[in-house]
């Protein structure tokens, strides 16, 4: 039935979407690659080809290696903290209780909010002199670190905000995984007198793993792009927080070096495409799973 139509009708539904996506995604990729071999500037100057000089600079530049390391560290720490914390909260939320819907909705709100706006507001919370976080720590008799001015703590602050924002996502997915485990399996384990730890390690964790894997991949591809929080906490040019996206911004828009920025972008895109390929393969596998 579905294929009685002539091809033009079939393509008419999908063509506008595909054309727009190619115009705004494939075209920039190709154009980026062309620009990467030039000395193009953001403002003025004549553009001419300079061969692979930009790429040579990308790999010689210590800033690039620094941004790769920092982004990798950020992704690793943010995603693993969110996973562990999210899974722990999901375990606590597993049983039904009165007001669960309200609590759940309140818990999930942070992940829907604007990272740029909330990141900016976190500056007020984290301020060393008048921030509520340090005022609370003072009331508890704890030390009050300078979250926004001490080098290493800027990275911690960024991590903290990301964890605040995205742990809800892990809670949401972990809870879906937990709810999908048939109670009969637990009953069988109880008859076998399995310890709580064994039940967790042999039943709960492995049965949640596929969904948690999806969550980790989604968060990884997202954290890899981290830009908004860095801009909110330190701006683009702080060695303590410079991620790949903010380095791109610094080179292209602050230094005005479009050619060099484009070759940076090409290398970043290779990294992103590699991770995205792993992700889409995984999605494909997930979809073939019986629901």
């Amino acid at each position: 039935m579905a294929n009685h139509e002539r091809a033009p009708i079939r393509w008419a539904f999908v063509a506008p979407t595909l054309i727009l996506l190619i115009a705004f995604n494939v075209f920039p990729l190709v154009y980026n690659l062309v620009l990467a071999f030039t000395n193009a500037q953001l403002v003025g100057g004549t553009t001419r080809g300079i061969g692979g000089a930009n790429f040579a600079r990308v790999f010689a530049e210590p800033e690039f290696a620094g941004a790769v390391r920092l982004t990798a560290l950020f992704v690793l720490l943010a995603v693993s903290i969110e996973l562990v914390l999210g899974f722990a909260v999901a375990l606590a939320l597993r049983r039904d209780f009165r007001g669960k819907t309200v609590v759940m909705t309140a818990l999930l709100v942070p992940m829907m909010l604007s990272p740029a706006v909330m990141g900016l507001f976190w500056n007020l919370i984290l301020n060393g002199n008048y921030g509520i976080l340090n005022q609370t720590l003072a009331a508890l008799g704890l030390p009050q670190p300078e979250w926004l001015t001490v080098g290493a703590l800027k990275f911690t602050s960024m991590l903290m905000i990301d964890v605040w924002m995205w742990t809800p996502f892990m809670i949401l997915i972990a809870l879906a995984g937990l709810n999908a485990i048939p109670p009969a399996i637990y009953e069988a384990a109880e008859i076998d007198r399995a310890s709580a730890w064994t039940v967790f390690r042999r039943i709960t964790l492995p049965l949640c793993a596929p969904l948690l894997g999806l969550a980790v991949l989604l968060r990884t591809t997202d954290a890899l792009k981290q830009f908004d929080l860095v801009m909110a906490i330190t701006g683009p040019n702080d060695e303590n927080t410079q991620t790949l996206s903010t380095l791109l911004y610094q080179v292209t828009f602050r230094d005005g070096k479009i050619g060099l920025g484009s070759s940076f972008a090409c290398v970043v895109l290779v990294i992103v495409i590699a991770v995205a390929t792993v992700f889409t393969r995984y999605m494909e596998r997930m979809q073939r799973r019986p629901a």
């Binding site: 705004f24 990729l29 792009k225 292209t252 992103v272 999605m283």
Partner: peptide, 21 residues
């Protein structure tokens, strides 16, 4: 392939494609 191409566009960091745009 088209479907996964569409999905993959979501992973582009804005800062890596913004100059041509």
């Amino acid at each position: 392939d088209w479907l996964f191409f569409i999905l993959s566009t979501r992973f582009m960091p804005p800062l890596a494609v913004v100059v041509p745009v």
